[in-house]
């Protein structure tokens, strides 16, 4: 940049500082109008003031715009969470140009007007930066959500009063089996349930480690006064378990989840009648 250019830059900096209140007010008007009724003007105004001041600091101190970038990133994140689009956020930042331009025009200074070109590029960069951080923020939100989904993918569900079920789906590595089993035991305590169904219909293979986790869980549940039924052992899994030499002892196994539920219901004193219409009629046995 030439000496001449530096002078222009300096002039616009001074103007930005001197006219802070006026520019800020216009900026908030313009940005607020663009955002419509969706933005809380008080909160947004406070945030914009912070950004404006950081912008001034960044302009006078040269390259170090860490503060400014931090504030912009935060603005971007908040906007993302509130459901604004990335262009909404970029437009918000860009609209400072309009406010500044009006002020320069009113001042009728050619130096400041020339400096405006440079200022305009500076703001464009900032707007682009909010765009980038917006995308990153969205990605983060999506990652968080899929992590929560993973947690949910092995849910402990309540089938009936006092009867819980864990449907195991997919490849069971040791860590996951352990998590699921711990979750089940925890849920048994929290709900005071006395029956649990562990359904392995969706599990492609059961090796000795998975079996050991199953056996330990059933034993632990028993100590807590709850009975587990293992359901969904498909023929190929049954073959393999027997050939491996794993003994399930007196653990009740059922071919399907519904058989297991029927068993648990009977155990808890609920009578099931298979009606002619194939509807299941349920009646609680009274002592």
């Amino acid at each position: 940049m030439t000496v001449h250019g530096d002078a222009d830059r300096l002039r616009i900096e001074t103007l930005l500082r001197e006219q802070e209140e006026r520019i800020l007010k216009r900026w908030l008007d313009i940005a607020g109008a663009a955002a419509g009724g969706r933005a809380d003007h008080g909160v947004l105004g406070g945030r914009m003031r912070e950004i404006y001041q950081a912008m001034l600091r960044s302009l006078s101190e040269g390259d170090d715009s860490t503060d400014l970038r931090g504030l912009l990133a935060e603005l971007s994140r908040i906007q993302a969470r509130e459901g604004f689009t990335p262009s909404d956020t970029a437009v918000l930042v860009l609209s400072v140009k309009e406010a500044v331009y009006e002020t320069i025009e009113a001042s009728e200074e050619t130096a400041a007007l020339r400096g405006y070109i440079w200022f305009s590029k500076f703001v464009d960069d900032l707007a682009l930066y909010t765009f980038e951080t917006y995308v990153t923020a969205r990605e983060k939100i999506i990652t968080d959500q899929s992590e929560q989904l993973l947690e949910l993918s092995t849910p402990v569900v309540k089938l009936w009063e006092g009867i819980l079920a864990v449907p195991l789906v997919g490849t069971l590595d040791s860590a996951r089996t352990q998590v699921v089993m711990e979750k089940l035991l925890q849920a048994l305590v929290e709900t005071g349930s006395e029956h649990a169904v562990i359904d392995i219909t969706g599990v492609p293979a059961v090796d000795t480690q998975v079996a050991q986790h199953l056996l330990k869980t059933v034993a632990a549940a028993r100590l807590m006064g709850a009975e587990c039924v293992v359901s969904g052992i498909r023929p190929q899994i049954a073959h393999t378990i027997v050939t491996l030499g794993i003994e399930f002892g007196d653990i009740v196994t059922k071919s399907s989840l519904s058989d297991a539920l029927a068993h648990a219901l009977r155990q808890s004193g609920v009578q099931l009648t298979q009606g002619a219409s194939k509807r299941v009629v349920v009646a609680t046995e009274r002592a």
Binding site: T171, P204, A205, V206, D207, T208, Q209, P235, Q236, I237, H239, T240, T243, L244
Partner: peptide, 27 residues
């Protein structure tokens, strides 16, 4: 386990035999 399962299918092992060899591989 996954690779053994794929190869077992390629060779034409029955579902029971696939499960057996996959389980042995796991062990």
């Amino acid at each position: 386990r996954q690779r053994v399962r794929t190869s077992a299918q390629q060779v034409g092992l029955s579902l029971v035999d696939q499960t057996k060899v996959v389980t042995a591989a796991s062990e």
